[in-house]
Design a protein around this nucleic acid. Structure first.
Length: 515
RNA sequence: GGCCCGGUCGUCUAGCGGUUUAGGACAUCGCCCUUUCACGGCGAAGAUCGCGGGUUCGAGUCCCGUCCGGGCUACCA
């Protein structure tokens, strides 16, 4: 039998990195075994469901390149794939009748107040809290009929067997056992007729022939209920795989406090989908050897449940950046340029920086946005020039967003000058001669189509002519004059890309700044 | 309160009773490369494997206890 897994999110907000990890593991697992990956929307809680959120889930999944073989957006043999629609189709009603008939479920007419009081008493008595009986679990048919005749609202609960052990064999944690007397009777059908997760999900997993229930460890405590439900129906249990979760640096569940958790924000910050997936896969999973930077194909080939760690992992932003830098360097320049163009074409990229609050220690979002828009314009108007600039910066950035700031000096007429750099490098008397020399060189025809080696030779000729011991006094003032900064690509390479006209204009301006 | 899960360098991890002076990676520091910043290369520092008992000739690896952390304990998922 082929492997079948499902990503079954409840679209109640943004798609965060924890959900992405969940989806990624399943996708990798399905691809590894040549099985099917199914998308199912769990929207049985109508008060929390939002269609915008569902759209965000689909958009995000599309961006990261996690694909499904069946789902609400593409259909499939098990349609519909939204639980609200499956409810309308009568799927859950049909199965609850079966369960009721077998005596594994029962109607309970307790009021919320009664349940609340029950739990309080249980806590005080140091007993497991939850619904273990009351009058309805063992209510007589007459009592039930009477309550129904009165029109009292009711829920349908699962009848968990008592005085026995419930054992599951988890693929990551091994054998886990519960005393069934500590497992309460969960609600299967709510008073409004909607199924709960416990019921809808398990019924769907069976109907859709899911072979592995891969989910976060927060579900482990409900696993005995789910296992019992399969047993009650007489269905084969799928393999349970309870994955560790991703937590924030404080060890708590990832939330807004830990910085960005929305996957689309990572896209907007200029992370490559392959780097993000690579990084996310490495939290809680390892190929078993020392490999870290891996391609999609390598991840699929290496992915295995045996490599999943039982303990939760923290999200290390620094390592993500490193991996992203590796991914950028792995691209050939043409691909990279296309990647950048796509990145800049996405509306959310600009939107993100527009609404981002400035933070001390990181570049001002306004500046990032400005330089990014400049890069976009240049790619549109002078693609070849933009490509040359990007080639030179490819080795020194970590995110796509970094290209804006890094390439800025290539694209503006006169780059903004770093005053400290000017103060440091424009005071040597020889600098005036250097600038004069550069202007003269630029007016010579031979420089117009020159490569880096020609600029190299030209500057070294100046060094020799003035008997300078080191190249520094030549290189540094020139760099500041041309880029406004003390850091950046190799000077000769950058000069070759700028060309004599731009060089001349910048040197001319720099002359005016000399001490 | 109850039930369950987890615990190896700051972080992600390798380890599946002996080849371990516990390996790799990120971050940190140093050196090299070099016109700068990066990239790359080399190296340093960093974990008595939460703690305490066992089992064993031998334990990070098995068992028990304990502590700490987390999850669940909804007519949420």
């Amino acid at each position: 039998m082929s492997v079948r897994v499902r990503f079954a999110p409840s679209p109640t907000g943004m798609l965060h990195v924890g959900a992405l990890r969940d989806a990624l593991f399943k996708s990798l697992f399905a691809r590894h075994w040549g099985g099917q990956n199914i998308l199912r929307i769990e929207d049985t809680d109508r008060t929390r469901y939002s269609p915008e959120s569902e759209q965000e889930f689909i958009d995000t999944l599309k961006w990261v390149g996690i694909e499904f073989d069946e789902g609400p957006h593409i259909g499939g043999p098990n349609a519909p794939y939204r639980q609200s629609e499956r409810k309308e189709a009568g799927i859950y009603a049909e199965w609850i009748v079966v369960l009721l008939g077998k005596g594994h479920a029962y109607k309970a007419f307790d009021t919320p107040e009664q349940l609340e009081e029950m739990r309080e008493i249980q806590m005080i008595n140091k007993r497991p809290s939850g619904y273990f009986g009351g009058i309805w679990r063992d209510g007589s048919p007459e009592q039930v009929a009477a309550a129904e005749a009165e029109g009292k609202p009711f829920v349908i609960r699962q009848r968990i067997p008592r005085d026995t052990a419930i054992v599951i064999e988890d693929a990551i944690r091994g054998r886990v056992e519960w005393d069934s007397n500590t497992v309460d009777d969960p609600v299967l059908i709510k008073a409004d007729g909607m199924p709960t997760y416990h019921f809808a999900s398990m019924v769907d997993d069976h109907v859709m022939e899911i072979t592995h229930i891969i989910r976060g460890e927060e579900w482990l405590s409900s696993a005995p209920k789910h296992a019992c439900l399969f047993d009650s129906f007489g269905w084969d249990r799928p393999i349970f795989v309870h994955c560790p979760v991703i937590v924030g640096t404080d060890g708590k569940k990832l939330s807004k406090r830990h910085g960005a958790t929305r996957v689309l924000d990572y896209a907007a910050r200029g992370f490559l989908k392959q780097a993000l997936k690579n990084f996310i896969a490495l939290i809680g999973w390892s190929p078993g050897d020392d490999r870290e930077a891996m391609t999609e194909q390598e991840l699929i080939e290496a992915f295995d449940i045996k490599g999943i760690q039982p303990s939760p992992g923290k999200f290390d932003y620094e390592k993500l950046k490193w991996l992203n830098g590796c991914a950028i360097r792995a691209l050939d320049p043409e691909q990279l340029l296309q990647e950048i163009a796509d990145y800049l074409a996405r509306p959310y990229t600009t939107e993100y920086f527009e609404q981002l609050e400035p933070e001390p220690g990181s570049p001002n979002p306004k500046d990032v946005l400005r330089t990014l828009l400049l890069l976009r314009t240049t790619i549109e108007t002078d693609r070849a020039y933009a490509l040359e600039a990007i080639k030179l910066e490819q080795q020194r950035v970590q995110t796509l967003a970094d290209f804006g700031e890094a390439c800025e000096f290539f694209f503006v007429d006169l780059p903004p000058m770093d005053q400290k750099a000017v103060d440091k490098w424009f005071k040597d008397p020889v600098t005036a001669s250097l600038f004069a020399y550069l202007l003269e060189e630029c007016s010579s025809a031979y420089l117009s189509e020159s490569g880096p080696e020609v600029y190299d030779a030209s500057l070294r000729a100046f060094q020799a002519a003035y008997g300078l011991e080191k190249l520094g006094p030549v290189v540094h003032p020139t760099r500041v004059a041309l880029t406004g900064k003390t850091t950046g690509p190799g000077l000769f390479e950058l000069m070759s890309v700028l060309g004599p006209a731009r060089i001349a204009a910048r040197v001319e301006r720099a002359k005016g700044l000399l001490k």
